[in-house]
Simulated assay, not measured.
Amino acid sequence: MKTAAIIFGSGIFFFVPVGIIYGILTDFQEMVGFPGLLGLGVMTAMIGVYVWLQNRSTGRIPADDLDGEISDEAYEYGFFSPWSWWPIFLAAGAGTVFAGVAIGWWITPFGGLLVVIGLIGLVYEYDRGDHAH
């Protein structure tokens, strides 16, 4: 994690100067690349700071050990629904929303409705029926 914090944190030292140089070369007339590169530098710094703080609070993790075994990382990742169709429905809704941005804004509300229905179905899947707890 320490290496990841250094890599992400050093992104600000690359992207911000490149963004400033880009702005100078375009006379600050093209207002997509300049703020985009500045924002990218700030975001990489945010990720670097977050990973560094996590590394400070948790210490060494098994992935940092060069002599570590695969079994050192073995733990339960959580519970996932093995027979659920709701994630597919949710992904179709999210795809429709993003397609609406590219094709036409009138498609976006239909995708949003699919996302809401899929999200409600996914959250309340284990509240009724055969799999209720």
Rank of each mutant, 00 (worst) to 15 (best):
A92C: 09
T44I: 01
S10D: 13
K2T: 15
E125R: 05
H133S: 06
N55W: 09
I21L: 06
M1F: 15
D65M: 07
D130M: 13
F79K: 08
W83I: 12
V16M: 02
Y75V: 10
R56M: 12
Y50G: 08
V116R: 11
G23C: 08
V101C: 10
P109E: 11
F13N: 13
G48A: 10
V42T: 05
L66N: 14
S71T: 08
S84M: 02
Y124C: 10
V123Q: 11
W105S: 13
T44W: 01
D127G: 13
I47H: 04
L66Q: 15
F34A: 00
D27F: 05
G36W: 01
W105C: 07
E76L: 11
F15D: 00
Y124N: 14
V16C: 02
S71F: 12
D64Q: 08
F15E: 00
M1L: 14
P17F: 04
P109N: 15
L90G: 01
L119S: 15
F14G: 07
G9H: 06
L114N: 05
N55V: 08
V97T: 06
G9Q: 15
V32W: 05
D67Q: 14
W52G: 03
L37T: 00
A92I: 03
A91P: 02
F98Y: 10
A91W: 06
Y75Q: 11
A63E: 12
G23I: 01
E125I: 01
A99D: 08
R60V: 08
D130V: 10
A4V: 08
I117S: 06
K2Q: 11
V116Y: 09
L53G: 10
W106A: 13
G19A: 02
H131F: 15
I12A: 11
P87M: 02
P109F: 07
V101N: 10
Q29H: 07
